[in-house]
Simulated scan of single mutants.
Amino acid sequence: MSTTTAGYAAITGEEAVLAADTFDRMAAGIESAARCAPATVRLVLTAFATGGHVLLEDLPGMGKTTLARALAAVTGGTSRRVQCTPDLLPSDITGVTIFNDRSREFEFHPGPVFANVVIVDEINRTSPKTQSALLEVMQEEQVTVDGSPHPVPSPFLVVATQNPIDLEGTFPLPEAQLDRFLMRLSLGYPGEEAELALMRGALQTTPENLSAVLDGTEMARLAAIADRVIFADPVYEYVLRLAQRTRRHPRLRAGVSMRASIALCRAARMYALADGRVYVTPEDVKALAGPVWGHRLVPLSGAATAEEAAVLLDEVLAEVPVPGPHENRR
């Protein structure tokens, strides 16, 4: 067997089924509070379980914040919210060191980033200087204030929301900031029945009333199981060919980086596990290419919108041959 699971015990079907049941219960809780597509909920859960951050891009009033709060509730962690405004300072996010007159010592007062799920609302409405305050903590899970590192709780997830970049009063995120997000997702409008139910004031569970499905220890165990999901060499090579094609695309100034390829592989393992499978398929890769790679593409014209990225990735996926079904488990 040619996989990267060498040194690990092979994942069992029972483990995969139990993991899939955990995902189903978390998804059911979120969907009861946030009226969004089940596919989107599955992607958000995949990102969180993988240890990646999520950028929700959509128009105001689409339920982005409700989704993030529901995620925090079902995963049993603490959550804090940051409302971004043009006058927000970096210390308003990370925390600040203050001199204590009684003890005659400097004390660190942690900011809202010290939580398991940090909801950063309308991240592109704050200045680039404040946006950059999230760079270190999203990559290293710590903040450095006055030269002293302060680790944040584990697991740690940033769920940032942003309005489309062409709306007034926004500061587009730079490539380095975008690369910190594992996925960029869009909720879109709800279906007719769901929107009618909301308009009628139909009973809906609030995030605060959701029960936790698992805790941080169980989340770490889920990640360890995903590390043992079979990822066959032909599927690895498929990801590599896709990445190389983005780097040679005539309408792209820059394709995806090595970090983006690794991120896609990690997410694909968790995505397969959430489906109750012990191996990754090319279909998993294709389903995740848009959410994981779309915001990392740099077209000749500038930053790619979700729609532009989808078109470019569709072209790439159409041009690269897909491994046969018999190759997925070898």
Rank of each mutant, 00 (worst) to 15 (best):
T3A: 12
T3R: 07
A9E: 15
A10S: 15
A16W: 08
V17P: 05
L18C: 03
L18N: 07
A19Y: 05
R25V: 10
R25T: 12
A27H: 10
S32V: 07
T40R: 04
V44T: 09
V44A: 10
A49T: 12
L55S: 01
L59W: 06
K64C: 03
R69T: 00
A72T: 14
V74T: 01
T75Q: 04
S79A: 15
R80Q: 15
R81W: 08
R81D: 07
Q83A: 14
Q83I: 13
Q83H: 13
C84D: 02
P86W: 05
D87I: 11
D87F: 07
L88M: 06
P90R: 08
V96G: 07
I98K: 09
D101P: 14
D101Y: 12
R102N: 13
R102H: 13
H109D: 13
N116C: 00
I119T: 06
D121H: 03
T126G: 04
K129G: 00
K129E: 07
E141W: 13
Q142W: 07
V143F: 07
T144S: 15
G147P: 06
S148A: 15
S148R: 14
H150S: 12
H150C: 12
S154A: 15
V158W: 07
V159K: 03
Q162K: 05
D166K: 10
F171L: 05
F171V: 01
P172M: 10
L173H: 02
M183A: 03
L185H: 02
L187N: 02
E193G: 09
L196C: 03
A197N: 07
A197Y: 00
A197K: 06
M199H: 14
M199Q: 14
T206D: 14
P207I: 11
E208L: 13
E208R: 14
V213E: 02
L214F: 09
D215R: 03
D215T: 06
A220N: 01
A226F: 04
A226H: 00
R228D: 06
I230L: 15
A232I: 09
D233P: 01
V235E: 03
E237S: 10
R241M: 10
Q244F: 03
R251W: 07
R253K: 12
G255A: 08
S257N: 03
M258V: 13
A260I: 01
A272K: 01
A274Q: 00
P282C: 00
W293C: 00
W293G: 05
G294I: 00
R296I: 13
L300K: 09
G302Y: 09
E307F: 08
A309M: 01
V311Q: 11
L312W: 09
A318P: 10
P321Q: 11
V322H: 00
P323D: 01
P323S: 04
E327P: 03
N328F: 15
R330S: 00
